[in-house]
Each structure stands twice: as structure tokens, then as C-alpha cells.
């Protein structure tokens, strides 16, 4: 299934330039259309700007120029907490749960953006999806293991029924077995109709589950296409390699 075959975009990015300092852009003009229901991997060498792109879309990094639309809504410059309300969920790489709050409070915190009547129901739905969490609602989230933390972070993001969910390296620090479990979960979520964007270092594991991929190099898109076959495509190696050669020069 190629990205071009998907008619209605869930997320559209045009000419996006973003970074932490005004005179030092890290994302240097990215165009990207993600179709509704797509499962996209954002790949690239270290320092390519993958994370910054994800954070810029999520409203955590300032956008210098460019356009950003979620569905039909212009979201460029919206604060992060408003983006959550409009259906864009972001799961940061590290420290993605509140360790001093209980599991229940972690979920409640997010549920507070929903209408009061739906909060209880959404929290129960999260526990139904992750029974491990449901069994330990009143313990402090800081006591959870790495895999359980990732679960809680994912559950938290799903709570608001997002149309688009972006995850920044969910595999970081997890054992290969747990990585498989996390990616399985993401696949399930995607199959329920959520557009999932996965920023990953773990190229092979990511391409095994996603349907399409975007390769970023030095803040620019160097490849966009289906995931299938990309892992064995010699060009992928070159894209990563090219970066290193560029650095050495």
C-alpha cells in the first residue's frame, strides 16, 4: 500500500523549518503528507532532525516557517496542550510518564481534556487494552518497569482518541522482546484506524511493522515510499552513509 494511494491526509506538512534557536534550524524545509490510517516510520541517521521534526509537529519546538495541518485544521504555532485536544498525541522518548503520580492519576491527567461524561469510560477502555496497568492503578508510575512505562505512555496518548499519534523512539532502552511487543501494540492501534508515526533508530524492527517510511537526512527528506523492501534496499545504506561522508568532509 503506497502513501499516494491514500486519499485524505491526516497530517500535512509543507516547507517546515524548525529548531531551538532562531538562527540554527534543525528541520530545514520538510514536505510531508501522511494519509489517514497510515503507519509511517521516520528514519534517518543520528542528528538528522527526526526527533525535532516530531517535536515541531507536536508543538514542542518552535516553527520558524512552513505550514502544518491536522486534517483540515491549520495547527502551526498552536501550543502543545491544544494540539492534544485537536487529536494529535505525542509520546516523548524518555521520561514519558509522571513518576510521582499514580497510574490512575497519569491517565486522569490526560482524561481531563475530555468532556466529563467520557473520562471514566476512556480510562476503563485503556485498562481493558492494557490489563497490566488496570491491576496496579494506585501505585506510583515510577515503580513501573521500562516496558510497562511505555505501555502507560501509549495508553495515556490513546486516551484522547487521537487521529494521529506520534511516538519518539518507543524502542529506546527496551529488550528486543519488549520492542516486538510495543510494535505489535502500535500495529493494533493502527488497525483501529489511528494514523501512527514512528520515529525510530531501530530501522529493521520499525520497517517490519510500518507500511511506509520517510528517510530524513540533515533536516531534509531524502526518501519517501513504502516500507516493504526498503530494509534490503542498498540505497538506504547509502542514505545513512552519505550523511557520515558529509560529516567527515
Amino acid at each position: 500500500m503506497s502513501a499516494a494511494a491514500v486519499p485524505s491526509p491526516a497530517l500535512a506538512v509543507a516547507g517546515l523549518v524548525a529548531g531551538y534557536e532562531r538562527d540554527l534550524p534543525i528541520v530545514k524545509g520538510v514536505d510531508l503528507v501522511v494519509g489517514a490510517g497510515e503507519f509511517l516510520a521516520i528514519l534517518g541517521p543520528n542528528g538528522a532532525g527526526k526527533s525535532t521534526l516530531a517535536k515541531a509537529i507536536a508543538g514542542l519546538v518552535s516553527i520558524h516557517s512552513g505550514e502544518l495541518a491536522l486534517g483540515t485544521r491549520d495547527i502551526a504555532g498552536l501550543p502543545a496542550h491544544e494540539l492534544v485536544r485537536s487529536g494529535l498525541a505525542f509520546v516523548p522518548q524518555t521520561e514519558n510518564i509522571f513518576a510521582t503520580l499514580t497510574i490512575q492519576e497519569n491517565l486522569q491527567l490526560c482524561a481531563d481534556v475530555l468532556p466529563a461524561a467520557r473520562r471514566g469510560e476512556r480510562i476503563e477502555a485503556a485498562y481493558a487494552m492494557f490489563p497490566d496497568l488496570g491491576a496496579r492503578r494506585t501505585i506510583a508510575a515510577g515503580a513501573l518497569s521500562g516496558g510497562q512505562r511505555q505501555m502507560l505512555a501509549t495508553a495515556r496518548a490513546l486516551l484522547v482518541e487521537p487521529s494521529v499519534m506520534i511516538l519518539d523512539e518507543p524502542s529506546a532502552g527496551l529488550s528486543p522482546k519488549l520492542v516486538g511487543e510495543v510494535f505489535e501494540t502500535l500495529l493494533r492501534i493502527n488497525e483501529q484506524g489511528v494514523t501512527v508515526i514512528l520515529v525510530e533508530q531501530n530501522v529493521r524492527a520499525a520497517l517490519a511493522v510500518t507500511r511506509s517510511a520517510l528517510v530524513l537526512c540533515d533536516g531534509r527528506v531524502v526518501h519517501r515510499g513504502p516500507a516493504a523492501g526498503l530494509a534490503d534496499d542498498p540505497r538506504l545504506g547509502e542514505m545513512f552513509l552519505g550523511r557520515y561522508e558529509g560529516q567527515a568532509a
Binding site: L60, P79, A80, H81
Partner: peptide, 12 residues
């Protein structure tokens, strides 16, 4: 605990 994560979690 974490102002950035709070924003992502929808906290104003």
C-alpha cells in the same frame, strides 16, 4: 515533575 510532558499530556 515535568513541564514538557505536562504540555504533551494536554495540561495548559
Amino acid at each position: 515533575e515535568n513541564p514538557v510532558l505536562a504540555r504533551v499530556a494536554g495540561v495548559d
